[in-house]
Computed example of a mutant assay.
Amino acid sequence: MSANCPLCNTSGGVPVAQSANWRVIRATEDANFPAFYRLIWTAHVAEFSDLSDAERHECMDAVTRIERELRAALQPTKINLATLGNVVPHLHWHVIARFDWDSHFPNPVWGTARREVPGGAESRLALPLAALDARIASALQQRDS
């Protein structure tokens, strides 16, 4: 844990699921991307290669389960995966459902917007966010079964 790290000191978003080694949150800072999730590693490490082999497998298994559930629930045009850490050097994976109608597509979510989404992006999703969160949490709990 680092005293100055926002991912050590805050939840980072809406809590969805957690294990001893990671937590998954739904990011809320940009309403243009309501199906934007993060897997945040519990220990304060900066790089994926800081993890042991078993930890890397556990981390990517969880990221894969999130991706699969987003694909099954929403049928997005694409899933974006990213681990940057340039601003917050605490290992976390972005898992973002992207749609050809979203405000930035095909640009990255951090790029320039190309259009407005009438009625808001959340209204275009196939199910409410709370239901999507529950589906992701369930998929992550099944990892040990």
Rank of each mutant, 00 (worst) to 15 (best):
E29C: 11
A17L: 01
A97K: 15
E58S: 13
A97D: 00
E47R: 15
V14F: 00
W22Q: 08
I40Q: 05
D50M: 09
N86T: 11
R98N: 00
G12W: 05
R71H: 14
V14T: 09
P89H: 04
N32P: 10
F48W: 08
I79Q: 05
A31M: 10
I96P: 03
V95L: 07
L51D: 00
P89M: 02
A72C: 09
L91M: 08
D61L: 14
R65Q: 11
S19K: 08
E67R: 15
H90S: 12
P15L: 10
F36S: 08
H94N: 04
T28Q: 15
R23I: 06
V95F: 04
E67H: 15
D100K: 01
C59D: 02
G13C: 10
M60K: 03
N80L: 07
T83D: 04
V14Y: 01
S19L: 03
A46P: 10
V88N: 14
R65I: 01
W93M: 05
T28R: 13
F99P: 06
E29V: 13
E67F: 14
V16N: 07
R98I: 00
L91N: 03
A43E: 15
R68Y: 02
G85V: 07
I40P: 06
A73W: 11
A35F: 02
L51Y: 02
L39S: 08
N86Q: 13
C8K: 01
G13Q: 10
W93F: 12
T42M: 10
I66W: 07
A82Y: 04
C8A: 05
V95M: 08
T10V: 02
C59L: 14
T28F: 12
A72F: 11
V95D: 03
D100A: 08
A31N: 10
S49T: 07
T28C: 12
Q18H: 09
L70T: 09
F36K: 00
A72V: 11
N86I: 12
D50P: 11
H57I: 15
V14R: 01
P76V: 01
D100N: 11
D61W: 10
H94Q: 03
V63P: 11
P15D: 02
A62W: 01
E69F: 00
F36A: 05
R65N: 05
A35Y: 02
T42H: 13
M60Y: 14
V95I: 15
W93V: 02
F33C: 00
I40T: 06
L39E: 03
N9H: 04
I79W: 06
N21P: 03
S11I: 09
T64S: 12
L81A: 12
H94D: 05
D53F: 10
W93T: 03
A43Q: 15
G12Y: 06
A72Q: 11
H92Q: 01
T42K: 12
M60P: 13
S19C: 06
H94K: 02
V16F: 10
S49D: 04
S52Y: 09
R98L: 01
A73F: 13
R23L: 06
A73R: 15
S11Q: 13
W41L: 00
R26N: 03
W93R: 05
R26G: 03
I79A: 11
G12T: 02
V63R: 07
W41P: 03
